Simulated assay, not measured.
Amino acid sequence: MDIEELLPQEPEGEKKEAKQSPLVSLEKDLELYADSIREVGIEIMVEGISANPIFIAHQHVVSIGELILNREELNTNWTIQASTLEEFVEKGIINPEKKALFLKSYKKPEDFMCVFVIVPEGANFIYYPYKPRK
């Protein structure tokens, strides 16, 4: 599956906003969402679904993962969906031969959220740290 297949085509004539990095608004939303994302990640691991939760951040409609935080309902910029390493391999986003390499770079899910960020220009993985629990 190609990344392009995950994204709908942009409607023509849609106004482009001033070019500010989408990561600025993403960081703000991840800060807001962090506790909820952490809870879902822990649930995925405790229930034995996967040891490697992956969260998808997007502003369109994507066909991977389960919706957990809807930007329209929360009046934010990014929607978050929960997925797993296994689903990413199954859908061909992570090549099965590269799974071990991915796992080497995968950070401890108790400390970092693994986020697959999808923007019109492409997609990439980032690791966003959770704030230490007090």
Rank of each mutant, 00 (worst) to 15 (best):
F88Q: 04
Y127T: 11
I94S: 07
E121D: 05
P129L: 03
E5H: 04
T79L: 11
N70H: 08
V24C: 00
G122M: 06
L85G: 09
L103Q: 15
Y106R: 06
I118P: 05
P96F: 10
Y128F: 15
S83G: 10
E121P: 00
V62R: 01
K16F: 06
M113A: 15
R71P: 03
S105D: 14
K91T: 09
E73K: 07
F116Q: 01
D111W: 06
K91P: 01
E121A: 06
V46Q: 12
A100M: 05
K16L: 12
V46A: 10
P22Y: 05
E121N: 00
T76K: 13
V24S: 05
P53L: 05
L26F: 13
A82L: 02
I54M: 01
E121T: 05
N95Q: 13
K131M: 11
K15L: 15
M113T: 13
P109E: 07
I93R: 04
L30R: 03
E47V: 00
I3M: 12
G41K: 07
E43L: 08
P129Q: 04
V24W: 07
I37R: 00
Y106M: 04
E10C: 03
S36G: 13
E14A: 10
T84M: 03
L23T: 11
F116L: 04
H58G: 04
L6M: 07
S36L: 10
P132C: 01
S50L: 07
V89R: 05
Y130L: 04
L6S: 03
L32F: 14
S25N: 12
E17V: 09
I42L: 15
L6K: 02
E12Q: 07
L32T: 11
E4S: 14
S36C: 04
E86K: 14
Q20S: 02
G48P: 06
K91N: 09
Y33C: 05
K107Q: 15
V115Q: 00
P109I: 05
E72N: 07
L23F: 14
I80Y: 01
I68T: 08
Y33E: 09
I49H: 10
E4R: 12
A100W: 01
I42H: 11
K28S: 14
L23N: 14
I56P: 08
G122T: 09
N95M: 11
V117Q: 08
E12F: 03
P96A: 10
I44C: 06
V117W: 02
M1N: 07
T76M: 05
A18R: 13
E86M: 06
I118S: 04
K104V: 13
I80V: 12
E87R: 01
L69Y: 10
R133G: 01
I93P: 05
R38M: 05
H60S: 12
P22R: 02
H58Q: 13
I64Q: 03
S36I: 05
K28A: 14
E72D: 11
F55Q: 03
A51Y: 10
K104S: 13
L23C: 07
E110S: 15
Y130P: 10
N70V: 00
E110L: 14
I64G: 06
S63V: 04
I54D: 04
L7W: 02
M113S: 15
I37K: 00
K131W: 08
V119G: 02
S83N: 03
A18S: 13
I49W: 05
E39I: 04
G65C: 01
K16Y: 06
